[in-house]
Simulated scan of single mutants.
Amino acid sequence: MLDLTKLMRQMQGLSQHMTEEAAANRQRLEAAQKYLEKAIATQDELVEQQEKWRDRIIFANATPVEPLNTCIDIPVPTKVHTVIATDGSQIAPSHHEIAYCYLLNIGRIVLHYGQNRHPLLDSLPEVFYRPEDLYEARQWGIRTEEWMSYRRTASEATVLAELACQVQEELSTAPVPILAMVDGSLIYWFLEQLPSDARNCILPPVLEAWEKMRLAQVPLMGYLSASRSIEGMNFLRLIACPHPVPDCMTFCPNQQDKVPCKLFESLRDTTIWNSQLKPGQRGPLWRSNSRIIELYGEQKVYFCYVHVGAEIARIEVPAWVAENTKLFDESLGLMLAQVQKGYGYPVAIAEAHNQAVVRGGDKARFFALLERQMIKAGIKNVGTSFKEARKRGSIA
Score class of each variant (00 low, 15 high):
L2Q: 10
D3H: 05
L4Q: 09
L4I: 13
T5H: 13
M8V: 11
M11W: 15
M11P: 02
E21L: 12
R26Y: 07
R28G: 05
Q33N: 13
Q33C: 09
K34M: 11
A41N: 12
E45N: 08
Q50K: 07
I58C: 04
F59K: 09
N61L: 15
D73E: 15
D73G: 08
V80S: 11
V83L: 07
T86A: 03
T86C: 14
D87R: 03
G88W: 08
S89Q: 00
C101R: 09
L103K: 03
L104Q: 00
N105R: 12
R108F: 05
L111K: 12
H118L: 14
L120I: 15
L124I: 12
D133I: 03
Y135G: 00
E136Q: 12
I142W: 03
T144S: 00
E146H: 06
Y150V: 02
R152S: 02
R152P: 00
T153G: 04
S155L: 02
A157W: 00
V159A: 08
E162F: 09
Q168R: 15
E169G: 01
A180K: 04
L186E: 03
S196D: 12
A198G: 06
P204E: 09
V206I: 15
L207T: 10
A209V: 05
W210R: 10
K212V: 06
M213P: 09
L215V: 15
L215N: 11
M221L: 15
S225R: 03
M233I: 01
F235I: 03
A240M: 10
P242Y: 01
H243K: 10
V245N: 01
D247L: 00
D247I: 00
M249F: 01
T250P: 00
K258W: 14
V259T: 07
C261L: 06
L263K: 06
F264D: 01
F264P: 00
E265P: 01
D269Y: 02
T271N: 07
I272K: 05
K278G: 03
R282Y: 09
R282D: 03
P284Y: 11
W286V: 09
I315C: 13
W320I: 04
W320S: 02
A322C: 09
T325P: 05
K326N: 11
K326P: 00
F328G: 08
E330A: 11
G333N: 06
A337P: 01
V339W: 11
G342F: 02
G342A: 08
G344A: 09
Y345Q: 07
P346K: 04
A350E: 09
N354M: 10
V357T: 12
V358G: 01
R359Y: 05
D362P: 02
K363D: 04
K363T: 10
K380E: 14
K387I: 14
K387Q: 13
K391Y: 11
R392K: 14
